[in-house]
Design a protein around this nucleic acid. Structure first.
Lengths: 140, 140
DNA sequence: GTAACTGCAAAAGGTTTGCCAGACT
DNA sequence: AGTCTGGCAAACCTTTTGCAGTTAC
């Protein structure tokens, strides 16, 4: 496996990336830590954090922004895409935006005059299927 | 000023909200704390946090998600809207999405089948005008 | 061989909580 | 009287850092 210039392929790094790629749930650092620890019982949380940051910096994975929680979440897929955040459980799921939205995002936004756009990200806030089933509703 | 059922209008709460509304820069809790402290020197940071959370919960202000920083930022405008995040300085600015985007967001997203959308949010990542001027560029 | 990396422990930084006194209704 | 609130200090949790020993190349 080749990572990038000057990034060495260590056992820790390889397994970390493997584990992250196994999940589409956008896990937190400590969730990743727990998963990796099953294969590398002596790995330290600091190593997990250092590598997640390094991999994100190199563009091999990405951080997912969550306003609601204080924990960072990580996405094995570094390409900009859209997420659905459950406002109840805090879970994050990938979303496939329609082609029209993708097309529009590449241009027609007012008031971005002097801001140089590198990437766009749409986040949906709402209830995930599980929470939706159990949330108390006002009307209906 | 009426806030909401059971929310009392205290001096702290009023000035906090006033100060937040004075800025479009989406300040952090400690920035708000500093601003408020000029009028209320004895206010505590805990009060600021408690009230920001309370006001956000009541839908009077909103939290802004930032993947990059560990500090929460706050927006006096509780209506869902779009933000531009500078990947260099971490600043956040409001964005006016085009009417087409707004229209599209209300419907045509695939794979949201079971997710109940309460609000949508578009974030742009890139360089704010100031950073843009001083960032070292690859080509050009 | 050597720069990059790891584990451990400690520190840092932001946010939250417990407690009691004070303010509002 | 009873509830909501604020200040203070301590606790908490996530993330970062320093250091000494180890590993990938």
């Amino acid at each position: 496996m080749k990572l990038e210039n000057s990034l060495r392929v260590t056992r820790q790094r390889r397994i970390l990336l493997e584990q992250l790629k196994l999940s589409d749930a956008h896990p937190t650092a400590s969730e990743i830590f727990d998963a990796v620890r099953k294969e590398l019982p002596r790995i330290s949380l600091a190593t997990v954090y250092r590598n997640l940051e390094l991999l994100a910096e190199k563009g091999l994975i990405q951080l997912v922004g969550t306003a609601e929680s204080r924990q960072k979440r990580f996405d094995w897929n570094p390409r900009p895409h859209c997420h659905a955040h459950c406002v109840r459980c805090g879970g994050v799921a990938d979303i496939e935006p329609s082609p029209e939205i993708n097309a529009l995002l590449r241009g027609s936004v007012d008031s971005l005059r002097d801001f140089e756009v590198l990437a766009a990200r749409i986040d949906f806030l709402g209830y995930c299927p599980q929470c939706r089933a159990t949330v108390p509703r006002c009307s209906e």
